[in-house]
Computed example of a mutant assay.
Amino acid sequence: MSGGGAGRFGELARLGVATVYEASGRQGLVDEDFIRLIPGSGVAGPARIAVCGPADNRAVHEVAARTRPGDIVVLTMDNPVPVALIGDLLVTQLKAQGAAGVLVNASVRDADTLRELGLPIWTRWIRVRGATKAHRGAVDRPAIVGGCLIRPGDAVVMDGDGVVVVPAERVDDVLAASLAREANEAAARQEYLAGGLSYDLHGFRAADEGAQA
């Protein structure tokens, strides 16, 4: 699994979407189906957002110029449609700028080439339908993706389980809670390997048998 850089984001990437989501109090789920283009990839980083005009990718060119190492570039529209906001040339730029990953709430194209480039990408669709370049759109503006508010600088975590967002001001607390959850799950796993059952460890058997008494 690829990481999202050193430090807090690297740890969030390692811990993964499911752990971070649960540890955050089941908040921040991007509740939409995305295609993970690079098998096995998982990343985390601060959101760098482009809100594009209708079926238009003008804002993607601007956000590519503003991308910094470690960013998760979030590309969306107010009303997403399966139009390709990004292809191999723009992804080449984002990779050269040091982006950690890309979340596309629209379509990508040149999918085989994008896989060869190796930059982790999650996309809602794969379509070749081209975008216009008539609307500037907005860069570093909050956006709602899959029912979740994403603000510039919020932590975006992506892996095989999907996407979760942690508000920037909660990253330290959620990271601490995620590490604690990881430790608890490791201890539980050892008990299960030794023959223990969650039915007993969670007290379900005692509650069920007590109800039947």
Rank of each mutant, 00 (worst) to 15 (best):
M1A: 14
G5V: 08
F9S: 03
F9D: 05
G10W: 00
G16E: 04
V30D: 02
E32Y: 08
R36Y: 09
P39W: 07
V43A: 08
A50F: 12
G53A: 07
P54T: 08
D56K: 09
N57R: 15
A59M: 10
V60S: 07
T67D: 09
G70K: 09
I72L: 04
V74Y: 06
N79Q: 10
V83K: 05
G87L: 01
Q93Y: 09
L94T: 07
A96D: 10
Q97I: 03
G101I: 08
G101Q: 04
G101D: 07
S107P: 04
V108H: 05
A111P: 02
R115A: 14
R115G: 05
T123G: 02
W125P: 00
V128I: 09
R129T: 15
K133M: 10
V139Q: 04
V139P: 11
D140H: 13
P142G: 06
A143T: 06
G146T: 03
G147W: 13
V156S: 10
V157K: 06
V157P: 07
M158D: 05
D159Q: 03
D161T: 13
G162P: 03
V163R: 01
V163A: 05
V165L: 01
P167K: 08
E169V: 12
L175C: 00
A183P: 02
A186S: 15
R189E: 15
A194N: 13
G196Y: 04
Y199V: 06
H202F: 14
D208I: 15
E209T: 15
Q212D: 10
